[in-house]
């Protein structure tokens, strides 16, 4: 498994596509931060426009600064800024889907998997790819956070990050949730063995994860008699740091999400995927 992982790292270095995706993610996050800044810079004008159009003041919901690493579309609007940044920013999960499509899938699509099949089982290949997804999720989240932080510095001349533990919680949670989606995408592509339907299903799935996570939060609340699993309530990641009262609850929730998804994907792999012919 170690040698296969090393081979994939070598391929990542040579093919450059993972690096390009990270650069695009960084660039788009800068753009997202910029647009966010512009919106806040024009707050009175937007406020007036919204009041005229919809009859309410969106800023009344609060104007928290959002580092915005959301991974789902079902985010309750807290401010126009959040709304716009959510709308403009290409979802981090989509970068992960692209990574899976252009980097992980070619092993099967190109047929290179045939060269490895006699030495490495499908399960071993699956777990190496799970590991790569986990690592890449952390990289994507960190790169996006760095870009947003830079734009914060430029736009607001400051970086209201809060405490380091909160920031780390925020990053770890976001990465775990992004990775959970990646596992689903990986399993779908392995299952369908075709790229386009797998990607289409994955994108549809991105829009279904919020209610699923919400349900899991409800289960957690039911069993722990606590009601502060709110990461699913407002957003999967956006404003997480500001809304969740306890960092461990947040991380626990994210761990629960990834554990459930990883469990399902691994089960599906063992029951179905690994028994399928490669070609």
């Amino acid at each position: 498994m170690k040698s296969l992982f090393q081979a994939e790292l070598y391929r990542a270095r040579k093919s450059k596509s993972p690096l390009i995706i990270l650069i695009v993610c960084f660039g788009m996050s800068l753009f997202s931060g910029l647009s966010y800044g512009i919106m806040y810079g024009n707050a009175p004008w937007i406020q007036k426009m919204y009041e005229n159009a919809f009859g309410y003041n969106p800023f009344a919901f609060g104007d928290d600064l959002d580092l915005g690493l959301d991974i789902a579309g079902f985010t309750r609007m807290k401010s126009v800024g959040e709304f716009i940044s959510t709308g403009l920013r290409i979802n981090i999960c989509l970068y992960l889907v692209i990574f899976i499509a252009v980097f992980l899938m070619p092993m099967r699509r190109s047929g290179f998997i045939k060269n490895l099949s006699s030495e490495h089982s499908r399960t071993r290949i699956f777990f190496v790819h799970v590991l790569l997804i986990l690592i890449y999720s952390f990289l994507l989240v960190d790169v996006a956070a760095l870009a947003m932080a830079l734009m914060c510095l430029v736009t607001y001349r400051g970086l209201p990050l809060g405490g380091l533990p909160e920031l780390l919680t925020y990053l770890v949670t976001s990465a775990l949730l992004v990775a959970a989606i990646g596992l689903v995408v990986l399993t779908l592509t392995d299952l369908l063995r075709r790229q386009t339907p797998a990607i289409v299903m994955s994108v549809i799935y991105l829009w279904m994860i919020a209610p699923t996570v919400f349900a899991m939060g409800q289960v957690m609340t039911l069993y722990t008699s606590r009601s502060d699993f709110r990461l699913q309530y407002v957003s999967l990641a956006g404003n997480l740091m500001l809304l969740s009262p306890g960092k461990w609850d947040t991380i626990l929730s994210a761990l629960l999400v990834i554990a459930v998804y990883a469990g399902l994907c691994i089960l599906l792999h063992f029951l179905v995927v690994r028994k399928k012919d490669i070609i």
Binding site: R11, S15, S110, G111, K114, N115, E119, I279
Partner: peptide, 12 residues
């Protein structure tokens, strides 16, 4: 150890 070439060459 087995070396394999089956159908289309599998290359990146």
């Amino acid at each position: 150890r087995i070396g394999v070439l089956i159908e289309e060459p599998g290359l990146y």
